[in-house]
Amino acid sequence: MGFLVLQEQDRTEHVATQKELAAAKKDSWVRIPRFDHTPSERLRFVLSGGQPHRASEWADTPGHSLEEQLAEIAQEVTLRGEAAERRRQDEIEAARQKRIRWEAAMEEARIRYAEVYRIRHLEAQEAAWHHATRLTEYVSAVRARVEAMPSGQARIDAEAWISWAATTVEHLDPLSSPPRLPDVPEPRADDLRPFLGHWSPYGPTS
């Protein structure tokens, strides 16, 4: 809150001096003031900021001095301070609740991200299994053809290829080892964004 104390002024009719009259007569742009303003013994107190309750200004009046209004001024300051503190506490609580909701959304996003990652891994394994199955059938067909070949260098080279191909297909086949859940990598902010709705992955206020 801001506090401002002003000294009020009295206004009286201005009596032009001979010098002013002569100057106005000589130059048309000269203006003689209508009133004189002199400092008075009256004060005005102005309170700014906060939420007003009763008033924002108090002044000396003929029947009510500023000193007599100090209790009312102090009460107004107290009420505005209490209101400001309530707003501050409400804002802190609102921010806390918002962070709780954001943290819950982030946790749900991490769960959904992990599930999607596992599904994609499963789909990749299924595709690899089909690929390995087709390659296995192909290698079997080649083996049957090579077994009918006569002995010689060509058959030796073909059998070497079959041995390499069979080993390679075994490595490609996901069923060659027991299945296990994949290790889900730590998600980046952009990885979680599709699962957060209106929330930002960078914080509840972003």
Rank of each mutant, 00 (worst) to 15 (best):
A160P: 01
D36Q: 10
R54C: 01
R118Y: 00
A127Y: 02
E76A: 02
T136G: 10
V184A: 05
K26A: 13
E68F: 01
R87H: 09
R42Y: 05
T38S: 15
I156S: 12
T205L: 15
Q9G: 02
A71W: 08
R87Q: 12
G49Q: 07
R87P: 01
A114I: 02
P201A: 05
L175P: 00
T61V: 03
S206G: 09
E91C: 03
T38L: 07
V5R: 10
E76Q: 08
S65L: 11
W164K: 13
A160M: 09
I32N: 09
H171T: 09
F35W: 12
Q7C: 09
M106D: 08
E147I: 00
S40R: 10
E91Q: 15
T136V: 02
P33K: 10
M1E: 10
T78C: 09
E82T: 04
A128H: 05
S177A: 14
P182F: 04
A74S: 11
E107P: 02
L175A: 12
A83L: 13
V184L: 05
H14L: 04
Q97A: 10
S151A: 13
H198S: 14
S48M: 06
G49W: 03
E107G: 03
A124W: 08
L21R: 15
V77S: 04
Y138I: 01
E126A: 12
E57R: 14
P33V: 01
D10W: 00
W161Q: 08
E41H: 12
Q153T: 11
I111Q: 15
T133G: 05
V184H: 06
T17Q: 08
W58Q: 10
E85M: 09
I73C: 08
R96S: 11
P204R: 06
T167G: 13
E85Q: 14
S28R: 14
A189L: 10
A109R: 03
E115T: 09
Y117V: 05
Q51W: 00
L47G: 03
I32F: 02
D183C: 04
P62I: 03
L181A: 13
Q9P: 00
V139K: 02
R188N: 09
E8N: 12
E57N: 09
W199S: 06
A74D: 11
R42K: 15
R118P: 01
A165F: 06
L21A: 04
E85F: 04
W129Q: 13
A154C: 01
D36H: 03
S48G: 09
P201L: 03
A127R: 15
A59V: 06
E170N: 11
S48P: 02
A83C: 08
H64Q: 14
A189E: 12
G197T: 01
Y117H: 15
H14R: 06
R110Q: 14
A71M: 08
P185R: 06
A124L: 08
L135F: 01
A105F: 04
P185L: 03
L175V: 00
L192I: 05
R145L: 12
D36T: 15
R80H: 02
S206N: 14
A84T: 11
R11E: 15
E123Q: 15
